[in-house]
Nucleic acid binder design. Structure first.
Lengths: 348, 348
DNA sequence: ACATTTTTTGGTAGCGCTACCAAAAACTCC
DNA sequence: GGAGTTTTTGGTAGCGCTACCAAAAAATGT
């Protein structure tokens, strides 16, 4: 025989938590709960007199809106997951910085996810963060598992994919033509008259964008009648030390190399610093070019020639595209090319 | 005269969303909704046979748990806000990396907040993120508005404050003795025999930890009978360029300086690279010490002497302390000193 | 075979807010 | 002053899941 239904008060959950709710604020202010909600969220719909009473009650009671309940009731939160392959690579850090600053200023929160270049992990992460009913998702790169693409398309809310540009993207795409950017450095080295140009990279097994750049590098060299297969790589994560090591490896294997195209500036910087220590003159003995545009590039001796990406701006733009979409504005194209810049300095 | 109550189906919200809910999964699997919830969250409480039916239904229907609803029902989410003063300073980036990796591996999500060294902004941010009913909060530094401290203490869930160690903290504290660390470099320079030692920093108006280190630097010098007031600073954000500039400023103002204690490695690296360009010999003409332990320090010519902080480890430890608390374990002290290390290299 | 205990499964009110519908109050026009 | 319109305020079911209580089934012991 079922027991009698408990009164609401008796059946209460989370005993002892005793948090102030919107209902408490409503009672204190002498208005309906929905008026408190309106006062906080759409104050223009509430008279000045009642707004004042509500604001006072909020202050006196120390009320903090429960965004979980609000999110459930309105089918969404002001959270934007940002999914990147790595948090130890400065590129993504600067992008995140641009995103976070722009979104936070617009009243949104960034949920941070890192896939470690693993598409299965990305798929699981996307499933997980969608559970928070975010307003949209910002993710890195155009390569995903089919399930991830399908899931996000079916989800139907704004998605920005950033870094490289492509012709096929889920919703919006912002970045640079990554192959073209790689080819740009190769062209520069060829135009400078170098003949035995090597490509040095690390972690390229996982970093397909670096592979694209090598591809483009190769094509440029072969079109110029040069050997594009001088490639030195390993799977170390990119670092100054990795750059130092792969640089020494390359010079030992092929002392005739007259220019090196590094997959990124960290590697290039490590090489330049090692060259300085060993009395190898850059660019006299070997020219060095990088990719990314780290600020360090301007301070090295010699200053590093690099292909500079607008990383922080990319983050800002991705966030702006997201916010415009969320606000129902269509100010941006769905595909935005931010362009890169060849910064020719002393190292070539 | 009020209209008749609408049937549930007729009164349904969010028309057209048509998302798969746990109830749909329950119907498909032929079990109660709570059984689906248990199968997903505490599978050991469900028989293997029913678990299989549930898992199959989840897959067939493409169900994604609504963590908002789950969070409301259970009075909490598996989200951990991480609040840092800046996303453009490598220190905090590496800490965030340690935190995020550890929490993500434990099934938690990081909500990222940046205060830009503004305690009012921090207060607003804390109020905002508490609205998501997070499991705990990780924040940077021990300086907060009184309202922030009161709010977090009243909240009663785990809070970790990281970076500098103190005697008064909200809940848990992990970091290093920041003054002692600053004094360490000063002692090193004094012991090395330098007599006119300057302290160079930027952004110290906002970065109280740097001020603490200057304070300690000063005390060490004055205890050694030396002038501790040789201070060169401005409010530029720390960068290689800022380091370059303040370095040149200091040398111009006081050509007799024989050693420089930089507030951080970015500044020190900028100075060393500029010294190289200008033919100023380090440490012969002027010795240089830094603070932080950037990997760049090991690659410069000369290699930089620095006080190294375990930044990534600090993040990992903060997250572990949080997770232990959340799991009801008391493996850690509430105050963990990670220690720093004086890395003596060529620049002194 | 039955009693007792343990394990598994289920019902439902409620977590806190808001979308939706509606009523009341205020304002404007004739 | 009353009719019509606009603005402001209110009631409540429901968003999706789960804590709590309870029932049913299975397992164990005598």
């Amino acid at each position: 025989m079922p027991s009698e239904k408990l009164a609401n008060r008796e059946r209460r959950r989370h005993q002892g938590e005793n948090r102030v709710t919107l209902e408490d604020v409503a009672r204190h202010a002498g208005v309906a709960p929905i008026t408190v909600s309106r006062a906080l969220n759409t104050p223009e719909k509430v008279s000045a007199k009642l707004r004042e009473r509500v604001d006072h009650a909020v202050k006196v009671l120390g009320y903090v809106p429960n965004l979980i309940a609000g999110g459930l009731a309105s089918a969404g939160t002001k959270v934007i997951p940002v999914v990147v392959p790595s948090l130890s690579i400065l590129t993504f850090i600067e992008v995140i910085h641009g995103i976070q600053q722009t979104l936070e200023n617009a009243g949104y929160q960034v949920l941070l996810g890192s896939t470690d270049y693993d598409l299965n992990r990305e798929a699981a992460l996307v499933d997980s963060v969608l559970g928070y009913s975010p307003s949209g998702v910002i993710m890195t790169g155009l390569h995903h598992r089919d399930t991830t693409v399908q899931r996000l398309k079916a989800w139907g809310r704004p998605v920005v994919e950033l870094m490289e540009l492509g012709t096929s993207f889920i919703d919006m795409n912002v970045g640079v033509e990554t192959s073209e950017a790689g080819g740009c450095m190769a062209s520069h080295l060829v135009e400078r008259g170098y003949r035995r140009i090597a490509f040095l990279g690390t972690g390229m097994e996982r970093d397909y964008r670096a592979r694209y750049r090598y591809q483009a590098h190769r094509e440029v060299l072969e079109r110029a009648g040069l050997d594009g297969t001088l490639l030195f790589q390993n799977e170390e994560p990119a670092s100054y030390e990795a750059g130092r090591r792969v640089f020494l490896e390359a010079l030992e294997a092929r002392p005739d190399i007259d220019a090196i195209h590094f997959a990124n500036d960290n590697l290039a910087a490590g090489a330049i610093m090692e060259a300085n220590r060993q009395g190898i003159r850059v660019p006299e003995d070997v020219a060095i070019g990088g990719y990314l545009g780290l600020s360090l590039a301007e301070h090295l001796t010699p200053r590093l020639t690099t292909v500079a990406l607008p990383r922080f701006e990319m983050g800002v733009k991705a966030a702006e595209m997201m916010l415009d979409r969320l606000a129902g504005r269509e100010r941006h194209s769905q595909r935005v090319d931010l362009g890169y810049r060849l910064a020719v300095r002393e190292s070539t």
